[in-house]
Simulated scan of single mutants.
Amino acid sequence: MSFDIWTTYVVTVLLMMATPGPSQLLMLSNSAANGLRRGMFTAAGDLTANSLQMLAAGLGLAALIATSGTALTIIKWLGVAYLVFLGFRQILKAGAPSSRNAVWTSRNALWMQGFITSATNPKAVVFFAALFPLFIDGALPFWPQFATLSATYLVIDGIFLIAYGGCASWLARRLQGTAKPWLDRIGGSFLILAAVLLGLKSLRTASQ
């Protein structure tokens, strides 16, 4: 793979990530509520799902999944419902007496939230299946190019997630006391917004 092709790919990924999506909004919410160190488990779940999606693309499975309309639609809307549930639960718990000394969300739960949100994002599935071939030279060995594209994406995505999580955690440490319930409500609203984004993407994909 030439440096020019790789650079073009990097620019494409950066442009795609310029606007926060469901995974970034989830990272904001979880890092604000649990701190960046624990929020990193959400990022790990997201990157794990991305790795599996990229592997599926490399094996030719992503295209098959994308053409299975019924199965893909069910997966998408389960993800939407899951985020709505998490968002409303966080909003309802905000400001409750027990929430001021609440136990942080477990690492496994944070990882699972990141994994499910990314795995049910239709843009991620279609992205890897449709975009990777545009940057792969058929005259060169496939797997080294695939590994380069995959590793590059994971690094960029990880940097974005850490940046979002770091900002949210920094803000949360400075908004304590009476401001904390409002921060929780904002975090819950971010989760619901992430669900709305997933739903809109699903409707847009279905109409095409």
Rank of each mutant, 00 (worst) to 15 (best):
S150W: 07
D46Q: 10
A195V: 02
M54H: 05
L140F: 00
T105A: 04
F85H: 08
I159M: 01
R100D: 12
R185E: 04
L191Q: 08
D184G: 05
S98N: 12
G39K: 09
F135Q: 03
L198C: 08
A172R: 12
R204W: 08
W111V: 09
D184F: 13
F190E: 00
I91P: 03
I136E: 08
L131N: 12
L131H: 12
T178W: 10
S23H: 02
N121L: 00
R174H: 15
V84K: 07
F135M: 02
R38W: 02
I5V: 15
Y82G: 01
G58R: 03
T19Y: 10
A139S: 15
I159H: 03
A139V: 05
F127L: 11
L203K: 05
A43M: 12
N34K: 04
G69V: 07
F127M: 13
L28C: 12
F128Y: 08
G165E: 00
L47G: 05
M40T: 09
S99N: 06
I65V: 15
G187N: 15
P22N: 04
N101F: 06
A44M: 14
F85R: 14
A147N: 01
A124Y: 05
S118V: 09
F128R: 02
G79L: 05
S31A: 14
I65L: 15
V11S: 13
L149T: 02
T19I: 15
L14M: 15
I5A: 14
W77G: 04
T152C: 06
S207F: 10
L140R: 13
M112L: 15
A49N: 07
A56Y: 03
A206H: 01
I162P: 03
I192S: 04
P97N: 08
A102R: 07
